[in-house]
Design a protein around this nucleic acid. Sequence first.
DNA 1: AAGATGAACAACCGCTCCCGT
DNA 2: TACGGGAGCGGTTGTTCATCT
Length: 264
Amino acid sequence: MEVMHADEEMMDLRRGPWTVEEDLLLVNYIANHGEGRWNSLARHAGLKRTGKSCRLRWLNYLRPDVRRGNITPEEQLLILELHSRWGNRWSKIAQHLPGRTDNEIKNYWRTRVQKHAKQLKCDVNSKQFKDVMKYLWMPRLIERIKAASGVSPAITGVLQNSPSSHHHLIINDGVLESSSTVVSRPSSESSSFGAVSSFSESFEAPPATVSGLPEGADSGGLCGWPEEQSLMSPGFMEFDQAWWNGDMISDGLWNNVEDSSWFL
DNA sequence: AAGATGAACAACCGCTCCCGT
DNA sequence: TACGGGAGCGGTTGTTCATCT
């Protein structure tokens, strides 16, 4: 049941889903007059909508360069990376995924990422979950990207069968690169760690410079993580040793990981 | 086949910031 | 400097559709 606010009732403003006719009015008006000044645009276009509503409809849906459909593994990787750096700065993250809107990325995070955290029975902002993203999800995404394209042009990587090896995401000069590796646990624990060991094989790929980042995007060093929120912050080697020894991620959490196939 | 449930996505709301007056 | 309107951002809610029971 649609609830109409008093001022909207007075001005006969519409709310809720947009009709095809409204979309046409908005698109045609912007084609002829350009975007901006949304409140007056709404009036002059003959739309009984707020300027806000028009702006949102245009930016999130009608804009010709808006990309729709499934978020690709490359985009997922980038979202995880950038969110670990900037947190819920959706519009800032969206700037680095051409054609994707902040709303879409926010929805992706809420429906997918937070769901996975819930499945693992941990908070999405917890260290544990960040470790899962860092050591499982992101490497798995890289593996998927590699598998999908033979040798991925987007990802540079060397996976080594070493317990202390890692994936590194490197963003330099607007280029997202991944180098090296993945973590696997000692064979004594392999029974509960199959998902990880399955991608702790070696591969080599040629250098690559493809990414979702636009030219001139800001960059960092290793994984571009200047802030303490970084998944791969400086000093991660020491941290990893503790993680490796089982101090960081409980067996219960790993059991949850094993039980779910979400990161595939 | 029909209702219940949950995932995905579209849209709205409140707040803040910026800029012109 | 204060004020008001426009614009943008992040959180939240509503709607639709697919899957499950």
